[in-house]
Computed example of a mutant assay.
Amino acid sequence: MRLSRPTVRSRLVAKLTVLACVASGAAATAAVTAAPASAACTDIDVVVARGTGEPGTLGWIVGDPVYAALKNKIAFKSFMGYPVNYPADLSIGSASKGNTDLVNHIKSQAASCPNQKFVLVGYSQGANVVDNSIGVSSDGALVGGPITATIPASAEPRVAAVLLFGNPIRAIGRKVTGAYAGRTLDTCATGDPICGNGIDITAHLSYGNDAAQAAAFAAGKL
């Protein structure tokens, strides 16, 4: 019997959740101080939406290594890291809850810290969260959802870079367009079934290898 595409994707998501937890145990991590919503001002706020079931302060597979790479690349700036507060699970509305929290955090920080710039990082379901927040709907994508809020136009110029990994909207033919397109690095590994048409689920767990490249891209925008 040939499985339908939705059935295949459902099984991929379930497998991804398990593999993410297993892979994280062996992942190299760096010390990250997670900032509360009302944190003191820094030069750069790295706002990270982790992937489905991904542990770690900002996410062991992507968030933590990308944060460490950014601090290493831009040593003369002060940083804070904010882990988007959302379930990051397979429940209905998970990505939309992350969308709301991310936008609320940007609004709060933008009002409190007029000189602060933002780097948005999203991995897997977290990429859906970031997509929604910059006005690109993830509804209909794997572990996606409708837009609940978008970053205000007044704060948009302060988003220096958007770093996306394993972005599920790519699998349904969408991409980041508009004001954020030139500031976005949207990485999809060869063989990744979540953002492309591949069959190698381990490719979806490989994005820590792209941390230095992502940091270099963001540094060029800051």
Rank of each mutant, 00 (worst) to 15 (best):
C188K: 08
S24G: 15
I194G: 04
D45F: 05
P55K: 06
P55H: 10
L16F: 15
S4D: 03
A149I: 09
Y123N: 10
S112L: 10
A20H: 11
T148A: 14
V13G: 11
C113Y: 00
S137N: 08
T42R: 11
P36V: 06
E156M: 13
Y86F: 15
V159W: 03
N85L: 15
G59R: 01
R5I: 12
N72W: 00
M80H: 08
S24E: 11
A153H: 09
D210C: 03
V62P: 11
N104C: 02
F217V: 08
T7P: 02
I169E: 07
L142E: 12
V84F: 05
G208D: 12
I61R: 02
G208Q: 04
F76I: 08
L19W: 10
A27Y: 04
V143T: 15
A26R: 08
R170H: 11
I201G: 10
A35M: 05
N167R: 09
A28Q: 05
M1H: 11
S133W: 08
G178I: 01
T148D: 07
S96P: 04
P55V: 03
T184L: 03
S96H: 01
G81K: 07
E54T: 10
L163H: 07
P146T: 06
F118M: 09
I172E: 01
T190S: 13
I199Y: 14
S108K: 13
L58G: 00
A37T: 05
A161M: 06
P36M: 10
I92V: 15
A68P: 00
L3W: 07
N99H: 03
A155F: 01
G220E: 00
A181I: 13
L90G: 12
G98C: 01
T33P: 00
S78P: 02
